[in-house]
């Protein structure tokens, strides 16, 4: 058998393997990638800290330095309590950058090329990256909750509402991680990906995270009220009992439903784009 025949035979074998694998295998392959990424997390726990630097700085800066000036009636303690759910949502936003960085690093280091050569489902790699980001978000939220309690944040609703809030945060974060994975595969440069942190923080700023949208000028207010971050923050505040649903347009009137719709839409769009981008060789 010649070298060319060998190569052709190997290619046929790979294609056959891909075609004949059961439908459950993307999950199994995806779990392998999750496991691989979690091992990296175990070896380098500073990743969790990196995920929390922005949200922690935000709570301390806005809670203590700007809080008195921004709080309605100057009640800084109540302001801090409403700020912590916004920090939870920022953890989800930071997850986007972490996922993008992880995907870009794998491309940059040639790991993605190695995965492509293995007899595994194409969707499994981005699926696994999103899964490991979900675990990282859960860990980050746990740490952030502890910090929240220290600055005076409390849950004022029942255990089911609180559980729903955490699940919604994780689902929203999971959706954003798909956006990050697609961007990482598209940009393919870790240094450039890290520049995304400023626009992401800007998007969180351009929401009801720090001030009520009613205090903003008309155009800015419209953007803030229709922002997915505003919907998520309002939903989480409502579920934790850290604020009432404000009068506003449809997204703020039904924040939980809006956040779910945004999350499903982001997964559907960016999940497809990420899978296509991963399958594409260039």
């Amino acid at each position: 058998m010649t070298t060319t025949e060998h190569a052709t035979h190997a290619t046929h074998a790979t294609h056959t393997t891909h075609a004949t694998r059961p439908a459950r295998w993307p999950l199994a392959d995806g779990w392998t990638i999750v496991h691989r990424n979690l091992l990296a997390l175990k070896r380098n726990p500073a990743i969790v800290a990196a995920n929390l630097v922005g949200p922690i700085a935000m709570v301390l800066l806005f809670g203590y330095v700007f809080g008195g000036a921004l709080a309605a009636g100057g009640d800084a303690a109540a302001y801090r309590e409403a700020l912590v759910p916004a920090a939870f949502v920022l953890v989800a936003g930071t997850g986007l950058i972490m996922a993008a960085g992880s995907a870009a690093l794998d491309v940059q280091n040639g790991v993605t090329e190695r995965f492509r050569s293995l007899p595994m489902q194409r969707i499994a790699v981005p699926f696994g990256q999103a899964g490991s980001q979900l675990v990282l978000s859960a860990l980050s939220l746990a740490v952030m909750s502890g910090l929240g309690v220290l600055v005076g944040w409390r849950i004022h609703t029942d255990v089911w509402s609180a559980a729903a809030a955490f699940l919604l945060l994780l689902f929203f974060g999971y959706a954003l991680s798909w956006v990050g994975i697609y961007m990482g595969l598209l940009i393919r440069n870790v240094e450039v990906v890290q520049q995304l942190s400023a626009p992401i923080f800007g998007l969180v700023m351009l929401s009801n995270a720090f001030v009520p949208t009613a205090t903003m000028p008309p155009v800015i207010r419209d953007i803030a009220e229709w922002s997915p971050f505003s919907a998520a923050i309002t939903a989480v505040r409502d579920l934790f009992g850290n604020g009432t649903i404000p009068d506003g347009p449809l997204p703020l009137a039904h924040p939980v439903l809006t956040t779910l719709i945004w999350s499903i839409a982001l997964i559907a769009i960016f999940g497809t784009l990420a899978a296509r981008r991963y399958a594409k060789r260039d």
């Binding site: 000036a69 921004l70 720090f210 001030v211 009520p212 000028p217 800015i220």
Partner: peptide
């Protein structure tokens, strides 16, 4: 200015 100005 535009995000925090009104509140401050």
């Amino acid at each position: 200015t535009y995000i925090f100005g009104g509140a401050i």
